[in-house]
Design a binder for these strands. Structure first.
Length: 505
RNA sequence: GCCUCGUUCGUCUAGGGGUUAGGACGCAUCCCUUUCACGGAUGAAACACGGGUUCGAUUCCCGUACGGGGUACCA
């Protein structure tokens, strides 16, 4: 049975890389009929951010990665929040102590900091621990006394030298480590909370996790994790590991960071994050006008590739096609242009009704008084030419409010005073004609220009400017049909008036 | 520094001992369209470097360079 988990820490917003990790976990679970679990790793009380947990859950829901078990979703292996499992970790820390795989250490963080400053490459390990303040170096009586006095102590993993640790990573193959080079990691902190390493191993074991799919930043510490499984006698049921390549900055060195969002002007989070502090605020893909399906598709292909050359994948198709073996080893640069392309593709293939729904927040923000049916028409008119949801009302502003300004460059090129009477007669002809479809209107127009002896190319740009103010946009008669006869006539008259004013000025 | 992972067009990637090194984004040109897009076509654009192994290496091996990650009582 495949059981995978996504285990973020609630220290703020969920990074887009985290969303991809969650996605890969989810895909494997769905593909195999297994479970996808959300575990909250809040063992660092100093970094806890209120609201972060809710943010994570909302973000997962938005992209459609709904957990089967976990914080907010129930399940038989709870609690799923690590701060609620303190006693469990304590118990296993004591067990490791008894088995001789761990020891008490009394060195204060300050002392260790000094050591690191004094001694180059200082590591708390088998070579140095005898010179430090711990239950391996101190006498039994001293240790007992220190513990009884309540001197702050941590529990560290005792790593035996001379061992070779071999990890079979599903993505990277065999990775080896020498135990002599590993440090004696803290397992239980002085505040009684476990570190990631202990909590992670205990929970993965207790929650019967079969596959650990996580970012590459964890590859190094996997050696410690294996040793922990060994020390607890759980090595035979140890999960298999798959370390994902990281998502890198679009330009420059290093992994994608929160700052890059602000720096390059694109989102690096699924949802926006509000904060009183300016520097903590962040834009989300959702608020930037992305469809969740597009974000999922984009993320899926950042580090993974299917058997064939298909690019557009629904979640169902991803579930079918996904495989851990096809995940790349090298880091992938975040490519916002590609993300935009996916969004555009998804908007094009989304039905008008759904698009209309998605437009509402932006329509309301502008207090436009329109009905649902009208928004569906807007969707039909604009979906081939927008990238983001808000482009419908942004780029299509003239569909919601009267034209206030005209593209003067285009106007001066196309307007000739000799056309004024023709334009005037067109208004009359349009008014007299039946209100028809865009095609019927075009027929009327063609007959009109033929009769007047003017080229369509002389009149059409002017009509466009009259209705939209800009040279860009949907077909003139489609626009007119959507706007309606009354509004179209109003705009035509306004335009004529404007042109005549300009002329006399 | 030490440990560890990686390196194919600008970017995401396919491929793999003999290929015109394939696709996608972006870019350019053209077609469609009396707008803008969409769509279609075409084009420019890559195997980090040096040694091996081999008849032959971009592919396998070893180095080097460059990049990532780790090196916390953070995850």
């Amino acid at each position: 049975m495949v059981r995978v988990r996504f285990a973020p820490s609630p220290t703020g917003t969920l990074h887009i890389g985290g969303v991809r990790t969650a996605l890969y976990n989810y895909l494997l679970a769905r593909q195999t009929g297994g479970q996808f679990i959300l575990r909250i790793e809040d063992t660092d009380q100093t970094r806890f951010v209120p609201g972060a947990e809710e943010y994570i859950i909302e973000a997962l829901r938005w992209v459609g990665l709904v957990p089967d078990e976990g914080v907010g979703f129930g399940g038989e292996y709870g609690p799923y929040r690590q701060s609620d499992r303190k006693a469990i970790y304590h118990q296993y820390a004591m067990e490791l102590l008894e088995r001789g795989h761990a020891y008490y250490a009394f060195d204060t963080p300050e002392e260790l900091e000094t050591k690191r400053a004094e001694i180059e490459n200082f590591t708390y390990n088998c070579h140095t621990r005898n010179g430090l303040r711990n239950s391996l170096a101190l006498s039994e009586a001293e240790v007992k006394a220190l513990l009884e006095q309540g001197v702050p102590a941590v529990i560290r993993l005792k790593i035996e030298p001379g061992q070779r640790i071999v990890i079979q990573d599903l993505i990277r193959g065999e990775v080896q480590f020498q135990s002599d080079l590993l440090d004696d990691k803290v397992l239980l902190k002085a505040d009684g909370m476990p570190t990631y390493h202990l909590a992670n191993i205990v929970d993965d074991h207790l929650m019967k996790i079969s596959h650990v799919i996580r970012g590459e930043e964890w590859l190094s510490s996997t050696a410690h994790h294996v040793l922990l499984y060994r020390g607890l006698g759980w090595e035979d049921t140890m999960p298999v590991f798959a370390h994902l390549p990281l998502i890198l900055k679009p330009v420059g060195d290093g992994k994608l960071s929160k700052r890059d969002g602000a720096k390059f002007g694109f989102p690096v989070f699924p949802l926006s994050w509000d904060s009183e502090k300016e520097e903590e605020r962040a834009m989300g893909f959702r608020e930037a006008g992305f469809l969740p399906e597009a974000v999922v598709n984009f993320l899926a292909l950042l580090g993974w590739h299917p058997e064939d050359e298909q690019e557009i994948f629904s979640m169902e198709q991803l579930i079918q096609a996904f495989s851990l073996e096809k995940i790349n080893k090298g880091g992938a640069r975040f490519d916002y242009e590609k993300a935009k392309w996916f969004n555009q593709k998804y908007i094009q293939s989304t039905d008008n009704k759904t698009l209309a729904q998605l437009m509402w927040p932006y329509v309301k923000a502008h207090e436009y008084d329109v009905c649902e049916e009208y928004l569906e028409q807007v969707a039909a008119l604009m979906k081939e030419r927008v990238t983001f949801i808000q482009d419908f009302v942004g780029q299509g502003q003239y569909l919601f409010e009267t034209v206030a300004t005209y593209d003067m460059e285009a106007l001066s090129k196309k307007w000739k005073s000799s056309l004024a009477p023709v334009f005037e007669r067109w208004i009359a002809a349009y008014e007299a004609a039946q209100e028809g479809t865009s095609i019927e209107q075009e027929e009327v127009f063609k007959a009109f220009v033929a009769e007047q002896g003017v080229k369509p190319g002389e009149m059409l740009p002017l009509l466009r400017l009259a209705l939209a103010g800009t040279m860009k946009g949907p077909g003139v008669f489609e626009l007119a049909a959507t706007l309606g006869k009354e509004e179209t006539l109003l705009r035509l008259n306004n335009f004529l008036k404007f042109c005549l004013t300009i002329e006399t000025a």
